[in-house]
Design a protein around this nucleic acid. Structure first.
Lengths: 332, 332
DNA sequence: CTGAAAGCGCTTACAG
DNA sequence: CTGAAAGCGCTTACAG
């Protein structure tokens, strides 16, 4: 039989309540009693039963991480897991556990989330931006359930969220080129209706404008984020009368195609041309030529999300909507 | 106030025990009572309190996934997360939750694992092979704590584990070349003291031997798994008097270097040379030339690990040591 | 500073 | 087929 708080109480010659108070560090307990109880705990090798503690306290010190965990997601979207590691690590530091939850093949995500809240198996939820919708948002807000969304949701501004500032990342890219006095510059964008892509382009353009460097339309090419289009775009740009001195690829997929075109054309980077992209991917480092990367440490964003969900639990009325974690420019 | 089992009992005009029995699907309850209770549950929108259930039942229906979740691990080792997704998904299907636990920066992993067991916050543990050691193994075995190790531990054969069969993967690679009647063949190996690398080479050699195709020592090159060595090895092999007609790279890092050398030399794959490697990585698909890949679906291994831990919980004396999930040859 | 006692919301022998 | 009651192992007002 496992040893319980009763056994410790008997061994130390005190009451169960006293043992509990020692365990929870009440300052009303005399040092002498504390020592005796601790000795008994050690002697009996006692560990509190987490199930009982959680039940008696009415809290779990557990956070649910809600996301989409499909097969192969780890290869397609490693950032999601790096964020998760950050959230997890910082929750653990603060004495919280983290339970995974998936709604990728869930036909009734609303009900799943409703159950999370009703079953009380967690004190809060961290939601990856890719899986949230208005229905889930309403549910969480109506129940005042502590939550943090990773990634700025576009549809509901009553939610709490953290996000990386893609606008700022675009600005960093432009700053880098302005500082190196490069001109003219070009931008190969992703899908126009994607927020991240739009934001990066907007930030990029804003800085150029500020420095009175206009970027004429023929230097901006929008793609559907395929390698082939990245490749074609570079071919097209470099065949211009005045080819650009810098190519900024809005994402890594475009950059893969771009690199191939640059390699074929024998372009030297950065001597002949500056080559930039955003985010480090597992394959960024084997691109040839090597781009300069404006990266965002999403692990750090995860750490911060963990801080925030804990603060929300302690103070549910807190409103948190925050751009966090500055980009950094990495020359590989 | 949240609605409890008492409220349901009162609403349905039955006792608390009866509601509990309905909830747990006892077959001694009359259909009429069942219907009435279910109606009340719906009417009151009742959901059992998970903390209370877990406490009363003495089980959690929770599994701990023990691994190393350092920053950037998601980029370096995406397979680990694909396995994790498989474990998680199949646990969820069987009504289990999964809690993450990390011992990467843990100075006392033994104590951490001891606490997992003592605190009873999980019914079992799935351990990634990279974080287990003899000390932890002893602890788990001594306490008869339900567990599955992902990856065959070399040091203790009392543990339960699942693994992919790397020997078999090596055999598949050789089979593929034998079937295409390629000769001579070469093998660029990783570190000689690494189990996976050794196994792949062993399987590869065994099949060749069986088919009376010897592989002479100059066609086998061992490296420390760097791109540069992969690159150099290919250069060296193709400069031989009788260059090989096939190059098998024991891992993707070597294959990156090999691909670069092949591209420079203008070698056509597979017309001039067969080019093989193991495992799909995020960047495998952008290698040029494209290798044929002997891949193992580690997500599937995760699914199977989940089945096994559940079986272990139901029957702790079960001994499970199993090679699972066949390799598959993928031509990209 | 310490302890007796109620209570957290279920499950499960046991009795009927 | 149903219910009264004990119990799971803690926490926490409350009294002293």
């Amino acid at each position: 039989m496992a040893v319980t708080i009763k056994d410790v109480a008997k061994h130390a010659g005190v009451s169960v309540s006293t043992v509990s108070k020692v365990l929870n560090d009440w300052k009303t307990i005399s040092q002498e009693t504390k020592d005796r109880v601790h000795a008994s705990i050690l002697a009996l090798n006692y560990t509190p039963n987490a199930r009982a503690v959680s039940f008696a306290r009415g809290t779990t010190r557990n956070i649910i991480y809600l996301t989409a965990l499909a097969e192969g997601e780890a290869y397609r979207n490693p950032h999601m897991f790096d964020i998760m590691c950050g959230v997890f690590t910082n929750l653990a530091r603060q004495g919280y556990t983290m339970t995974m939850m998936d709604i990728s093949d869930d036909e009734h995500p609303r009900e799943t989330v409703a159950e999370i809240i009703a079953r009380k198996s967690a004190d809060g939820v961290v939601i990856h931006g890719s899986v949230i919708n208005q229905e889930i948002a309403n549910l969480i807000i109506d129940h005042e359930f502590p939550h943090i969304v990773i990634g700025h949701p576009e549809f509901d501004n009553r939610l709490c969220w953290v996000d990386t500032n893609h606008l700022l990342a675009g600005q960093y890219a432009a700053d880098y080129l302005v500082n190196h006095d490069v001109s003219p510059v070009s931008f190969i964008g992703g899908r126009r209706n994607e927020l991240i892509s739009k934001e990066r382009e907007r930030g990029f353009r804003a800085v150029l404008l500020k420095h009175h460097k206009k970027i004429s339309p023929e230097y901006v090419i929008h793609t559907n984020s395929t390698w082939q289009e990245g490749y074609d775009a570079v071919r097209q740009l470099l065949a211009m009368q005045e080819p650009p001195k810098a190519i900024v690829c809005e994402n890594n997929t475009i950059a893969v195609g771009a690199a191939r075109a640059l390699a074929e054309l024998g372009i030297r980077v950065p001597e002949d041309l500056f080559f930039l992209t955003f985010d480090i991917y597992p394959y960024t480092s084997i691109l040839d030529p090597q781009p300069t990367v404006v990266d965002i440490n999403v692990y750090d964003m995860g750490l911060q999300a963990a801080d925030m969900i804990v603060r929300k639990i302690e103070n549910p009325s807190l409103m948190i909507q925050s751009y966090t974690t500055l980009p950094r420019v990495i020359t590989l």
